[in-house]
Design a protein around this nucleic acid. Structure first.
Lengths: 244, 244
DNA sequence: TAAATAGTGTCTATGAGACACTATCAG
DNA sequence: CTGATAGTGTCTCATAGACACTATTTA
């Protein structure tokens, strides 16, 4: 009755919000956590001209099967590679975030090993570049509410790094335990205890030792390779759980 | 140039997906975890007529400030109360989930103490009812992909209950530690050790003892009340972290 | 008294932190 | 040899689990 009618009407009555997908793509290079940003076109007819933003854009209902497919498509367009890790962060939507109208964005975050990446000029971006993730530094001037999205992404990343094996997705095919520990430390912004770190990793059984060592001006280090089809490992306790 | 032009065009070119907000509202009553479902109208002009679904619906860009506001509005409409806990679960969107077209839904989950609730007949729902959350039981026949959304919500709820104080939001104003432990156990579907449980709660400093006891045919139990403005507490270790 | 539930004491096991120690390379 | 980094041994501490014990009520 009234209920049914109204439901049908909604499709006509209610304005559909603008719908986008944005992605925070992280890598670790030059001893720093970096995020990929793209510069918006300079024309004044676009919102936030020439400002930096997270890569993303409108869903193409003709091409995109689902939200994650849309994220993967955009990610591939920007970085040229399939990402080893993609996770949904959440969604943000309100009347103000886009001057063109009520809009909602579905946000993903991805981790990509530094060497894998070949940046491509995006169709919609004059330029794309890796920016170091510093606390609230450049974040202030990002387009839309992307400073907030980026903050949420970094926060989620850091908190998951405390109790998971996430950083392995940032490593090259072969790496040493010291290099992996460094990656953890760069993301978390603090030093970790070597012994606890190695005990954790050993217990997770994530790697195979390759019969090769990484040489340097000192004792060589064992090289490891991620085991096949290993899902994200959850450690039984987070780092720092022994603090008072 | 091409980039700018295309960006503008997208607003015209690209079909906007249908956008909804759905909510998994949980409570614990009659010794079971229950979720609120609403029955869809029976008219054949609506998708999934007469089937049960999570409460939710289209965003009203005129009334809803943001996604969370939309969720709170719908929640209030159904339950008649403000929820003490609301969290975004994620978003689901693809071409198939709604026969009317490419659609995306932003999903929230809420916890409400059982006594607080006064169910209201929703404008769009012939009926609404509390269903026990049994593994995959009734889930099969929910409208849209709501069985999957519900599974994700229950999964998120259970996993957070392992290391947070979430269940306190399901308790009445005054409760005993044994009652709180029961609530944990009902959600998790397993028994917890009394001593560890109480040690955890004591260390979190979440409650004030009220100068009153809960009487019964046995030793009376201390009643507690949640302290003011206590955010969700995160315990340093999850339950079960000592398992091999 | 018994039955029942509230609440505590105390031992073990796990794994993090601290940190000193040994190992192995280039010069 | 020294310097540097890889990797281990071992002690302490916090907290979960197990489980027996005591405490306090009603009937």
């Amino acid at each position: 009755m009234a209920g049914n009618k109204r439901h049908i009407n909604q499709l006509v009555e209610f304005e559909r919000p603008l719908t986008t997908v944005d992605i925070a793509i992280f890598t670790v290079r030059d001893q720093a956590l970096k995020v990929l940003l793209v510069q918006r076109p300079a024309g004044a007819e676009d919102p936030f001209p020439a400002q930096w933003a997270l890569p993303g854009g409108f869903i193409d209902t003709a091409k995109d099967e689902d939200l994650e497919g849309c994220a993967r498509r955009k990610l591939k367009e920007k970085t040229g590679v399939e990402t080893p890790y993609l996770e949904q962060l959440g969604s943000w939507g309100n009347a103000q975030r886009d001057p063109r109208g009520w809009s909602a964005t579905h946000v993903y975050f991805a981790l990509i090993p530094s060497e894998a990446i070949v940046l491509k000029a995006g169709a919609n971006s004059a330029d794309s570049r890796w920016f170091p993730v510093m606390e609230e530094r450049n974040g202030e001037k990002l387009a839309f509410d992307h400073a907030e999205l980026l903050r949420a992404a970094v926060s989620r990343l850091r908190s998951k790094v405390e109790y998971t094996s996430l950083p392995v997705f940032l490593m090259p095919a072969e790496f040493t335990l010291a290099e992996l520990q460094q990656t953890y430390e760069i993301i978390l912004g603090r030093r970790l205890e070597k012994k606890s770190f190695r005990t954790r990793m050993a217990s997770a059984d994530l790697f195979d030792a390759v019969p090769r060592m990484k040489s340097g001006p000192n004792r060589p280090a064992q090289l490891y390779r991620l085991k096949r089809r290993r899902p994200l490992h959850i450690f039984p306790r987070p780092f720092g759980s022994a603090e008072s």
